[in-house]
């Protein structure tokens, strides 16, 4: 898409706010609509937009496949690991009350941790699926559509 000047300029302006919005949705999920699932998707969309306009190769050089694949597993590990930490602290699996001396505060910490796990996995899976589909030849010219 080298000749689409408007798309390139608009993308350059848009990517940063999209990523920022993804982070907002991630960490503001307790207070408003949103949470890990939506945040992971929005965060991935920012990178996918970059990949569509500037080429998959440039995106891949910044975010190699093996990093993405590790993120996919890391999210599930964060989520399940939170549960294991709770058990180590003497509570039940995924019972966040024990994470802090104040049970309500513990719930807050636990929710932030598991939402982060959800977000990381969803981001990784979306990127991995996009790489898998877009990384296969043949790539199309504009006029083929």
């Amino acid at each position: 898409m080298d000749h689409h000047l408007i798309l390139r300029v608009v993308t350059q302006i848009l990517v940063a706010p999209i990523l920022l919005y993804g982070l907002y949705v991630q960490f503001h999920g307790d207070f408003g609509p949103g949470g890990g699932f939506q945040a992971g998707v929005i965060f991935a969309v920012g990178f996918i937009l970059y990949g569509i306009v500037f080429g998959l190769r440039r995106l891949r050089s910044k975010f190699p496949d093996h990093v993405i694949h590790k993120l996919v597993a890391l999210g599930v590990l964060i989520y399940a690991g939170t549960g294991v930490v709770n058990m180590a602290l003497g509570g039940n699996f995924l019972d966040y009350n024990v994470l802090s001396p104040d049970p309500v505060q513990g719930q807050h910490w636990g929710i932030i941790a598991v939402e982060l796990g959800v977000g990381v996995t969803v981001f990784g899976v979306m990127m991995a699926i996009y790489y898998a589909f877009a990384g296969r030849p043949p790539s199309l010219d504009d006029k083929d559509w």
């Binding site: 207070f31 949470g35 599930v76 399940a80 719930q107 807050h108 636990g110 939402e115 959800v118």
Partner: peptide, 29 residues
């Protein structure tokens, strides 16, 4: 009283039904 977050959907999703969400994340994985 239990969780004290304004968004009850998040409270149900991440805490009361934390097991289900773990399952969902595993499905996505």
């Amino acid at each position: 009283t239990d969780i004290d977050v304004p968004n009850i959907v998040t409270a149900v999703l991440a805490s009361y039904r934390g097991f289900d969400t773990l399952g969902e994340v595993t499905v996505v994985f």
